[in-house]
Design a protein around this nucleic acid. Structure first.
Length: 460
RNA sequence: UCCCCGAUAGCUCAAUGGUAGAGCAACCGGCUGUUAACCGGUUUGUUGUAGGUUCGAGUCCUACUCGGGGAGCCA
């Protein structure tokens, strides 16, 4: 007898076949007409399999009528077309074996109605809910789409270090990695006796290392965890998140933007094609109109707008902002949201930002005032991609570093790329969790990663 | 980190400074090819923590903890 997944058992091809399924009980409904309905889910798909458990089963009174949400079971039986609405098939059980009970008094998961805030306190059990099962499957499909996309485009997947000495781009606080007991360390003496003999940190970006491989292999991408010790407490920030960073040699900003747009569309396309049940759920219960919006994103060309033009649009919009937009200042969330949600109602790519608000490695434009940076803004989320064409001219790069108070010698290996066979190159970073948020409509980033890490939050 | 709001039964929430309640869950019973099943009944409390004001505090005050919304930082 074949042991099959719930996803398979829900397909009509399996009608009339004897099979075994295994999973967890979602609900039980008794019929005194002589049987119980069990809903079993094993995570292989959104829907449950309805089991018909007849009272003639030997453990019907002793066990089956006591099953409740969370119990694990193995069930043998015959798949049949369901006579009632609600499911294509169901399973007439010939044997129901209980593997593990779940005491209904203490088991925290109920059939219905849990807030995401409560489920965050039960992060080890929340994947058993509809929402978190669906998020997990979509997150998986997005991850696969990312690899598919880059592999098909000829990119090489490389793994950049997680422990790194480079205080990359001076962007925010880093987590220091040390084997020295803080109680034994004297002020400033720590690094000498420490494991690596110098201060090292968890990576905030694999970009600098990624550039070195792009300048040898042409097109590369990284896909791994990233750590930022910022004390930021929002629905779109995590201390530990996953980032995808492609880097391409012989590539300018326009090609970079082209890639970013194709990339995001490929992800949406894959999820819409392969996660229909999950996406229908998100559309109905999480974010009304989600599917229509994503389909619209697929059809539309992403708008491309220089920072300078964006500021002009904002200033003449007639919209009242808390902070007045002005050239040279960073765009506020309210500005970005206005552009992506109100003015264009579409993803927008902004480019050519003032050099003073961007990182040292971004290529300086001929005007001497702006750099070849780009941000992809999407409705609801805001910035989902940040990238740039990199500064490939040694002298310009060195002077930009000095302007920013960095010591070029610390970056000797990075500068070597410009000393030996320098080429124009570009790349960007995409936040995986923000992408999952965008695709699923989930409002809080802590609900699209299994175990969120945030300031004061590391329970599991 | 800053501003605003909140914390009461397992969960979601009520309760003029004056006897702590409902719905859901659980349990018992009824009914039914049911499907967020339905109907009747029963049980459930250190009101986030520590202080303070008051004859009396879930309610007012202070601090702290945690959560939510917004902001900054960014992906």
């Amino acid at each position: 007898m074949k042991c099959i997944s719930i996803a398979m058992a829900r397909k009509v091809e399996w009608v009339s076949q004897e099979v075994t399924v295994q999973g967890w009980i979602r609900t039980r409904r008794d019929s005194k007409g002589g049987f119980s309905f069990l809903e079993v889910n094993d995570g292989s798909c959104f829907g449950n399999l309805q089991i018909i458990a007849n009272s003639t089963l030997e453990n019907f009174q002793s066990e089956i009528t006591k099953l409740c949400t969370g119990c694990s079971v193995v069930i043998q039986g015959m798949v049949q077309a369901s006579p009632a609405k609600g499911q294509p098939t169901e399973l007439i059980a010939s044997k129901v074996r209980v593997l593990g009970w779940a005491d209904p008094v203490s088991y925290p998961m109920q059939k219905k109605g849990h807030t995401f805030e409560f489920l965050r306190t039960q992060a080890h059990l929340r994947p058993r809910t509809n929402t978190f099962g669906a998020v997990s499957r979509v997150r998986n499909r997005i991850s696969k789409a990312i690899h598919d996309f880059f592999q098909e485009e000829g990119f090489i997947y490389i793994q950049t270090p997680i422990i790194t000495p480079s205080d990359c781009e001076g962007a925010g606080h880093m987590f220091q990695v040390t084997t020295v007991n803080p109680q034994n360390q004297k002020g400033g003496e720590q690094a000498k006796g420490d494991f690596f003999g110098k201060p090292v940190f968890l990576t905030v970006s694999g970009q600098l290392e990624g550039e070195t491989y792009a300048c040898a292999l042409g097109k590369i991408y990284t896909f791994g965890p990233t750590f930022r010790a910022e004390n930021s407490n929002t629905a779109r920030h995590l201390s530990e998140f996953w980032m995808i960073e492609p880097e391409m040699a012989f590539c300018d900003l326009v090609q970079n933007m082209d890639l970013a747009e194709r990339f995001i569309k490929k992800i949406i396309e894959s999820v819409l094609a392969d996660c229909k049940e999950d996406m229908a759920f998100f559309d109905e219960r999480i974010e009304k109109g989600l599917l229509k919006n994503l389909e619209m994103v697929l059809e539309k060309e992403f708008l491309r707008l220089s920072y300078t033009d964006a500021v002009k649009i904002l200033r003449s919009s007639g919209q009242s902002f808390e902070f007045e937009p002005a050239w040279g200042k960073d765009l506020q969330s309210e500005h970005e949201r206005y552009l992506a949600e109100k003015h264009f109602n579409s993803p927008v790519i902004l480019f050519d930002y003032p050099k003073d608000i961007k990182a040292f490695y971004m290529r300086l434009n001929e005007d001497g005032k702006t750099v070849r940076a780009m941000d992809v803004l999407v409705p609801r989320i805001g910035e989902i991609i940040g990238g740039s064409q990199r500064e490939e001219r040694l002298d310009v790069l060195e002077s930009r570093m000095k302007e920013g108070g960095l010591v070029p010698e610390d970056y000797w290996w990075y500068l070597d790329l410009r000393r030996y066979g320098t080429v124009p190159h570009a790349g960007f970073g995409l936040g995986l969790e923000r992408t999952v948020q965008f695709v699923t409509g989930m409002a809080n980033i802590r609900d699209v990663i299994p175990y969120p890490r945030a300031p004061g939050t590391a329970e599991f």
